[in-house]
Design a protein around this nucleic acid. Structure first.
Lengths: 204, 204, 204, 204
DNA sequence: TATGAATGAGTATTCATTCAT
DNA sequence: GATGAATGAATACTCATTCAT
């Protein structure tokens, strides 16, 4: 069957991507050689080139696949939720959970997020940046809705979105990279508290 | 005089660091060659090795110098300020201003901030990470003081610090990298608003 | 039928050779890949290996086939001609015409003619060289006959043959590669003039 | 002295070129690797890249240097000679001698001469072709002069030049590549005979 | 039998760093 | 001490050929 071949091929690509993900997370793009990927994935070098055009292609395929997955997940997550407050809680929870379950990806993603990673090929690098932008816009839209509904304070929704996503990433970083022993809900609760109510005592 | 020699030497090091900063910001660590630095700084390649141990040494010296400068600046800034609220305002304002005036450094710093930039030599990379940690702890202390004084809500001060610094960097990134045409005080006001009062309408 | 199969096979081989000829003439042996030949001939790569042992085999088969054809043609051409002078005129005319009609082949042939094209596999390369040698000997024999008959001056017939063939190739090259707009008979007439009578004014 | 350094550098370049010449003559451009050149020349690979931009650069530098030398030599040779007949004798003699003394170069030159060697980089390949063209034009001019003076028959001088040079190369090839045991003057005498008086018995 | 897919072996080029002057 | 020059080691990518289906 073509189907069988197709699945075989997909599986192999995933194997290669998995090996590459591990390596890129540990050593970064430049310190990871194609030979490394070949060795870890246990596919001959030339075979890898049948699946990917080159090192950059692997790198960006990697990021895009997971970034798309994440985006879709987040969009689905809030579909049936009514209040903006709830939407944000769910988003935040999913965000934390996703990256906790994709630590290697998080390390790669966070380096590229800002589009500063002095990208290798302009066109591709820009694409990653756009993915992040798209996510920011998605959160912005929710906040804008919240403002309309009177749930959210009347402030620049884009900035609030940036702040929310930035905060999530910062907390994720601590949680994951520093291997702090906390539960997801600790972090979630904290973020919600601050984001919703600020850090100051009301009457001060 | 030894003194004269010493000053000469310091001046040369700064020249090299300045050239390197420009290059690292534009092309990143790996895409910048020692030959590039030699060319831009107008110092012969071998001479550069009299001042620095190698490319990594330049890179980390660069970051450390500015990071130390920043740290000292922030510490001084709040020395004579009483209320925690005011301290935080001042810190935030200085933070934004410093990076606005040191855009090239910001680009480099933000890649290394998390210590994820897949550092080249463990010892050096770790050091950068510690600088950032130190800053976080410094902010944490202020917040802890705020809690004691009843100015700040009783929440994990470390997390609040992370969030505050993360937010500042996120806003800075937008402001600088995206070349958004806003004033520093716009961003500052916004951050203070959110940080102090949250994003939700109080009675919601 | 075996016969039908056989013809099918022959036809396919010719298709492949035709594609290869075009490519070798345009890009040369080394810059032409098996994948190129597969693409242009529209035969799957692995199929080509059913017909030929490899790239070199294609290359030399190509040359040999045409070289044999040329040789046979020239031998037939002079069969019924009596005088050596006439034989040479006919040979020269056919030589020029053949290569004019087989430009791609000429480009390949001329690179290999001297057996210097740094042949890839000794045995095969040597064979090509022998084809040329055979042609030279064939012309030599005619000239030797001419000497016996008193038509040709008493000089080393081999050298005269070399000179004649070399001259024909040189003129062909100019005519074809430089796309000079001349007729075949212009070139022919010129060659005959020089070859037969020299370039100097008799009494000088 | 700068002078000393300069000479050192020149000497090294020549060493590398000499090694490359041997290799290119024996195996051709494509079958010769930079590693081969490094090994034979006994210069580290990276050092070779300090002197030449790459493999092609070596190849063409090689050809151009000798081609220029040859050209200059030929121009000087005929400067003080009066009759065209003598000029041609001298040219022919020098031509044969030069290539006899530069056998490796001859092998390379003859592959590139026609500009058909499916050149690697267009611009460079064309340059070689032009060198040969220049030589042809130089001979053409002499023949044109001969016509004017009534020494040479009134035929297209360009074609005569092509024929003369082509013939010289053909004879050289036999003499050198086939290792025929003849003296230079044998070949010279022969060529002069044919070229000047043709191959046919006058009254035939 | 025909062929899509797999791969071993090879190669040009780069660059951080050292050293002889 | 300053520096022009030298180089070891590394690395992305290609392609002729084979083989399992």
């Amino acid at each position: 069957m073509d189907n069988r071949k197709e699945r075989e091929r997909t599986w192999r690509k995933q194997e290669i991507l998995a090996a590459a993900e591990k390596l890129f997370a540990k050593r970064g793009f430049f310190k990871t050689s194609m030979a490394d990927i070949s060795e870890v994935s246990e596919f001959p070098l030339a075979t890898i080139y049948k699946f990917f055009q080159g090192k950059e292609d692997i790198y960006y395929t990697l990021i895009n696949e997971k970034a798309d997955l994440f985006m879709i997940m987040q969009k689905e997550a809030i579909e049936k939720i009514r209040t903006v407050k709830s939407k944000m809680k769910v988003l935040a929870e999913r965000h934390l959970r996703f990256f906790e379950e994709n630590r290697d990806f998080f390390k790669i993603y966070i380096s590229e997020r800002n589009g500063l990673a002095v990208t290798i090929r302009e066109d591709l690098g820009g694409y990653i940046h756009k993915k992040h932008e798209e996510y920011i816009q998605f959160v912005t839209a929710i906040l804008r809705e919240g403002i309309k509904k009177g749930e959210v304070r009347e402030m620049d929704p884009l900035k609030m979105a940036l702040l929310m996503v930035g905060s999530l990433d910062t907390l994720t970083y601590r949680w994951i990279a520093d291997k702090v022993d906390e539960t997801l809900s600790d972090n979630l609760q904290f973020l919600i508290n601050v984001l919703f109510g600020g850090i100051l005592i009301s009457n001060s």
